[in-house]
Design a protein around this nucleic acid. Structure first.
Lengths: 218, 218
DNA sequence: CATTGTGAAGCGTTTCACAGCC
DNA sequence: GGCTGTGAAACGCTTCACAATG
């Protein structure tokens, strides 16, 4: 059900455009997918569309948010105040979408105290305090590869149960911890694979409309 | 075959540790997967392991790099010099892994000229020149959502054929263009989904070893 | 005899097709 | 008439199991 977030975003956009009702066909088009798939996904929510009409946007948004647990904010803590950590903290897109940055921590005393994206960097020893005070469940690892495992262990130790990992390593954590990994270099390598194929297989380029956008999630 | 990059990273690490030979079992363990899957994947490369022994690390690295088109660098151009663009440009992990940043462009004249991560920000009108001069095939979109479609069109217009998109929109581009999307909020929403399930289904927490790390790619 | 390479079974996901409903 | 909801078919990926082999 990794597609629910995508539906949610599109439906939210439609809601702002004051679209009240949407068909599976239209929704599929907007997210570059297939109508049948959309209907299957939504029916899995025990959803309520009206035959011959479509789905009520507002109600769907509500249902999906509920299913995704987005009825309240989920504060996150970012470990690592390097370039990536700074960017994530300053990104803004997190807070808007229900994931306010409760804190940024780093192990390097030289980085502590600087302010980025409105958040002051604190020492990693304050991690436990931040997590407890703000009831943080989600940690983001934006450290260098070599520090990622230790960061994960510290997060787990203070009670974080979900981790978004930007370091290119497989973390070793208890099974109860949910880990998702984003490896930017892997994404580029997949693109390079396709570039290389274009170069070697030569010819038969297809040119067409939109639709079909590979993305994350498994 | 989105797992090849992962194998590559692990094999490269092993090579640095001067491991000359590795079994599918060990490799599977290191990337949190299953031995049979690893063998299937590698056999698809027309691979050469030795029965009873394992795979020669150096040779595998060579083969995978070849398959992924990593025999030479792929310079990339970043569109958007906001927080995310800055972070990506300064990240360093790109260049090291064969994707040097050929340029960063922005539409805002105020941002042009500033230097980040050793790269000077240039105006988007210089995009064509950068792409031609450095033979760039891959573009990275790090603009706000509202500007992403235009960025994509400009990239396509100047000859870029692969796009890594960080903006949460489905881009409309010719089918010949390979697009991959990374949506950070989606990743967090998937984590929140699991958090919410932990909260509601209550109980039966399993605690165990490592293994099993959801990641990107489809 | 440890480990690869692979046919075949298993399983989850996608797509089709159409009955059911508004 | 148009669109949803859903069984059933098709597909692809994962896992099993074992013969082949250095």
């Amino acid at each position: 059900m990794a597609r629910l977030p995508v539906y949610l975003r599109i439906l939210s956009e439609q809601a702002e455009l004051e679209v009240e009702c949407i068909s599976s066909d239209r929704l599929a088009e907007l997210c570059g997918a297939n109508a049948a798939k959309v209907r299957k996904d939504l029916s899995y929510l025990g959803s309520y569309g009206t035959r011959g009409v479509g789905y009520e946007v507002a109600y769907l948004v509500y249902q999906i948010r509920r299913e995704l647990g987005l009825t309240h904010d989920w504060p996150v803590v970012i470990v690592g105040a390097g370039h990536l950590g700074q960017a994530l903290a300053g990104y803004g897109g997190f807070g808007e979408r229900g994931f306010p940055v409760a804190g940024v921590v780093d192990i390097d005393p030289a980085k502590v105290g600087s302010v980025l994206g409105g958040v002051r960097v604190r020492h990693i020893d304050e991690l436990a305090q931040i997590v407890q005070a703000r009831r943080v469940n989600i940690g983001v690892i934006a450290t260098p590869t070599s520090a990622a495992q230790e960061a994960a262990e510290r997060l787990v130790a203070v009670g974080v149960t979900s981790i978004l990992n930007f370091a290119p390593v497989v973390l070793s954590v208890p099974r109860s911890i949910e880990v998702r990994k984003v490896d930017l270099a892997v994404e580029l390598q997949i693109l390079s694979y396709h570039e290389q194929r274009k170069a070697t297989t030569g010819g038969l380029r297809s040119v067409g409309g939109a639709a079909g956008q590979r993305s994350a999630s498994a």
